[in-house]
Simulated scan of single mutants.
Amino acid sequence: MSLTESTGPQSVADYRPQDAKSESWLALAAGIDVEVVQYFLVSARCGCFMQAARSLNVRPTILRKFLAQLEEQLQRTLFKFKDSSLTLTRDGQQLHARLIALAHERTLPAVEQPLIRLAVAETILHDILGRDLVSLLRRNASVRLDIISIDSDLTLQAISADVAVWLAGTESPVPGPSFSTSKPQPLARLDYKPHIAKRYSRVTSRPETLDDLADFLLVQWQHDRQIESFRPWNALVDQRLAGVVQLHSYELMLEMIRCSACIGLLPQYMGRFDRGLIELPGLFNQPMQRQVWLAVNAESRDEPQVQMIVELIQNTFSERREWFEG
């Protein structure tokens, strides 16, 4: 299959087998499509088709198809596997040198990726979006992404971003971003309950009333002290004269609940995120809830890369909708 077929990038010079008799095959380098040149050079640099595909943001099968077409058109084998590594053959090395020389004569256009700024509430980034963002980066190594962790309302007000995901009241997205955005979209309502590690809590000794908590160490993330809807929990912590740990790190709070027999306030979905944790229902009569909100910068909301991030976030919450159901 030649590069001039409709299934792939078009070459600026058609190759015919009989032409090889009258000119060196390397002379054809000037006629290779710019996109295919990039495929070849990146593959040679990475020494791995998978990594090259990630860097180029294409599927590995597409990358290998066009490289195979290039080998067929040049009638040369360009790559080989040696000791489980991808290397250039002698012909591949000659083509690589010729293309590098041509690159000095004519600047090959570089595709600059726009910088996308994503601001996410720290807990949502850690518990819900983190894994899918890692998967995105595994598929697309050329993305330019600035991830901003929102650990307080002040941070949310101070930053500027293309996409913002934050926690606020169940009825209103205020306080929200200070920059101009699209209408905030509710993604999920979160219920919060005290949690403890299963390993430290047998069913027969599990606390069922607030008085039962007297024998347990409580741990509190400092950010939660300012949340109005967490007043029942915060009042309990404030009453403590001993047996309380205050932390500024969300991850450390989780680790203390997992490993130190502490009880802390966490979203109700936490048992799905970490099977080793279990909620303690019935301790508080008043519900403690927050809403996850999504908004997009009004100036950049139509950018394809911004839409890609928005779709990833929406799909993540849609796929995990069972996490947020009571």
Rank of each mutant, 00 (worst) to 15 (best):
Y15G: 04
H195A: 13
Q246K: 05
V306N: 10
A44H: 00
L154A: 10
F40N: 01
A197I: 14
L67R: 03
F317W: 11
R321M: 13
L78Q: 02
N315Y: 12
R90G: 06
D274A: 14
G271T: 13
R131M: 09
M1G: 04
M308V: 02
R98V: 04
A188E: 08
D274V: 14
I257H: 00
D212M: 15
L95A: 02
G92C: 00
E255C: 12
R275E: 09
I263T: 01
L294S: 03
H248E: 11
G92W: 00
H96F: 13
V12T: 14
V244S: 12
R16V: 03
L252P: 10
W293Q: 15
Q93E: 06
L145E: 07
P184K: 01
E23I: 15
G130R: 02
G243E: 10
V42P: 00
A103L: 14
D83C: 11
D153H: 10
G243T: 09
K65E: 06
R106D: 03
P232Y: 03
R138C: 09
S318E: 10
C48Y: 06
S205H: 15
L63V: 07
A298V: 06
M270I: 15
A242K: 00
I32T: 10
L137M: 06
A121P: 00
L154F: 13
E72P: 15
F49Q: 12
M50T: 15
G92T: 00
S6G: 13
R144V: 10
R59S: 12
S180Q: 15
L102R: 00
Q268H: 06
S84Y: 10
A158Q: 04
Q291I: 09
L190V: 15
E23P: 10
L280M: 07
A168R: 00
I147K: 03
C48T: 05
H223T: 11
A158W: 13
A101T: 11
A121E: 04
R64S: 09
R275H: 09
F230H: 11
Q286D: 14
S22L: 13
E255Y: 08
L125F: 05
V12W: 08
V58Q: 02
A44E: 00
R225H: 03
K198M: 07
A20F: 14
R206L: 11
S172G: 08
R98I: 03
A164K: 09
A161V: 02
P175L: 12
P9T: 11
V42C: 02
